[in-house]
Write a protein that binds this DNA or RNA. Structure first.
Length: 561
RNA sequence: UGGGGGAUCGUCUAAUUGGCAGGACGCUAGACUCUGGAUCUAGAAGUCGGGGUUCGAGUCCCUGUCCCCCAGCCA
């Protein structure tokens, strides 16, 4: 096992585990991914999933999927199902599927243990009183007047809480630690609150629910978790995590480690904000292809492996960071470059008429499916007198270094012939509606007949044979590179990109694409990588642009702006 | 102004624990090309500041600065 490990740990947490294994502190690594089922998973969660499950796999250990469902007011079954689907889709297998709610009896028992030890008490102060008496960052808190109740009284009250004899907010169970502690989290944190709420799994069995800090370490202890990995904001909860474990008879002693959560350019990553986008209709749903959710990326056309590669490349550290979304783009391009079949699709059609090509002739040409593939395969594509080319590929009066069609220019039609532009027609509004050309029959297949070179190669489809399709182009959902740099008082929705989606409904694609299955990926030559959406049908093919190809001409144009 | 963390090319992340600051994305230039794609080659670009220890400091010491998190009966 150890022989198979790479020489160097790829991050600091992996290094800690290697050391723990080496020193014999642990024999088998057990981790967990502990989402709260109150929203859909996003790419930030993918980082945590890859870390936790990845560590389990790397060391021959285990990783559990555990739902941290201790707050029935926010949690729903729908979220549980989506989370399971997303984790599985990313390619990970959980050793055990668990719920914090499975452990409610144990939590209750341990709470009683703390009460019996004089380390927990029932507090009848109202919520705002508790807040006031917590003190501030610079001032110590004040002890609750209920802090010194007898053990018997606390036991009795706590049982009444559980029996449903008290109303929400009447009282809470608190740990008795230190109201003057410099770490606010240690100032007698709440362990249980009363919630007359039915729970998605335990139904009406409970009307008191444990708080995260109290419950989380116990969940880890029950499952034998060795390395409990969470994000940076829980760093000052670690003393509490330890306090709860130290003060009752737990079966196992886990340890907590923290890493920096993922932030990405032009993206928001909080569940609250993503939920807001969904509920306010800024996007079509959790799986809108512009969303950074796993389901959104899936529907956009990202592969699980590209997301895993991304998570590997961003690394794991404790420094707050903002990862360039270009790295994600790179990961999917890099993968699809090798695997995606190349086809031709015209997003904005412009008719090209070949004046010296016979009216009713259609000939079949051979097209290479993927130049990156070791074993070349070919398909037939129909060629005729009238074709569609891209509107962008013709200019009446082009700038310098424009390699495409303009009056007098010769280009290659991919896999087909050289054509030379002889003229064009405009409509009444001055828009170019047709380009005329002549072709060189000796250049069949796109080969130069006499060694002469052309700079440009255009993609095309035949007018009579091509299929109509809808193509959806996506761009950043937000226009601000660093959404954390928003000014005070601004709403992140002020930065919604009005051009984040463009629906093109007059596209023409090779007729073979009519038979594409939803979920298939292609490279549309010179455009990018596309994914047959689940709206796709042979009647109306629908493709999402996953990511564009790198476009050095567009970059060149930008420079001269 | 209490407590907890953090600071290395534009961005993300390494540096055998005191020994040539490396990689990736992005960027620039060139080569190549039946995708202005891909590929290849080259290049610019970094240790938060000030002191100190040392033959030698990103790493150790002192000092300062800046950034993030915490005052839910959320997680």
């Amino acid at each position: 096992m150890k022989e198979e490990l790479p020489e160097k740990a790829s991050n600091f947490i992996e290094q800690i585990i290697r050391d723990d294994l080496e020193s014999g502190k642990i024999e088998k690594v057990i981790t967990r991914f502990p989402p709260e089922p109150n929203g859909y998973l996003h790419i930030g969660h993918a980082k945590s999933i890859c870390l936790n499950f990845g560590l389990g796999e790397l060391f021959g250990g285990e990783c559990n999927l555990r739902f941290d469902d201790t707050n029935p007011t926010k949690e729903e079954k729908e979220y549980v199902e989506s989370i399971k689907e997303d984790v599985a889709w990313l390619g990970f297998n959980w050793a055990n599927l668990r719920f914090a709610s499975d452990y409610f009896d144990d939590f209750f028992k341990w709470a009683l243990e703390l009460i019996e030890a004089g380390k927990a008490y029932v507090d009848h102060q109202p919520a705002d009183e508790i807040r006031k008496n917590r003190g501030s960052l610079t001032e110590p808190g004040k002890n609750s007047p209920y802090r010194d109740r007898t053990i018997a009284e606390n036991r009795d009250l706590f049982c009444k809480m559980r029996e449903g004899e008290l109303g929400e907010g009447d009282c809470v169970l608190r740990a008795k630690i230190d109201m003057a502690h410099p770490n606010l989290n240690m100032r007698d944190p709440v362990m249980y609150r009363i919630l007359h709420q039915s729970h998605h799994r335990t139904g009406d069995k409970w009307c008191i629910y444990p708080m995260y800090d109290f419950a989380h370490g116990y969940e880890d202890a029950i499952e034998g978790v060795t390395h409990s990995i969470c994000t940076l904001e829980f760093e000052d909860h670690r003393p509490l995590y330890e306090w709860f474990l130290d003060n009752v008879s737990v079966p196992h002693r886990p340890r907590q480690f923290e890493f920096a959560r993922l932030n990405m350019t032009y993206t928001v990553m909080s569940k609250r904000k993503l939920l807001e986008l969904v509920t306010q209709g800024c996007v079509s749903g959790w799986d809108d292809p512009r969303m950074p959710t796993i389901s959104g990326l899936r529907r956009r056309g990202y592969t699980p492996s590209s997301i895993r590669t991304f998570c590997k490349k961003i690394g794991v550290s404790k420094a707050n960071s903002l990862v360039d979304v270009e790295l994600l783009h790179h990961c999917i391009r890099d993968e699809l470059n090798l695997s995606a079949t190349r086809v031709m699709a015209i997003l904005r059609p412009l008719k090209l008429v070949i004046e010296n090509y016979p009216e009713d002739k259609i000939e079949e040409l051979e097209a290479l499916n993927n130049p990156e593939s070791d074993i070349p395969t070919y398909r037939k594509i129909p060629f005729e007198r009238e074709l569609f080319i891209e509107q962008d590929d013709f200019m009446e009066d082009p700038p310098k270094k424009f390699f495409r069609l303009f009056p007098g220019a010769e280009v290659r039609l991919k896999h087909a012939f050289f054509v030379k532009c002889t003229g064009f027609k405009k409509d009444a509004g001055g828009r170019v509606v047709e380009v005329r050309c002549i072709y060189d029959p000796r250049s069949r297949g796109g080969e130069s007949p006499d060694g002469r070179k052309v700079k440009g190669t255009l993609h095309w489809v035949s007018v009579s044979q091509a299929a109509k399709a809808e193509i959806r182009l996506y761009d950043h959902l937000l226009t601000l590179r660093d959404m954390d740099a928003m000014e005070e008082g601004e709403d992140f929705k002020d930065y919604l990109n009005p051009a984040s989606m463009e629906r093109l409904t007059e596209c023409r694609v090779e007729e073979s694409l009519v038979n594409a299955k939803p979920g298939e990926r292609f490279q549309f030559l010179r455009h990018g990588y596309f994914f047959a959406d689940h709206d796709h049908s042979s009647k109306m093919p629908v493709f999402n642009r996953i990511v564009s190809l790198r476009d050095s001409w567009a970059r060149e144009m930008k420079k001269s702006d």
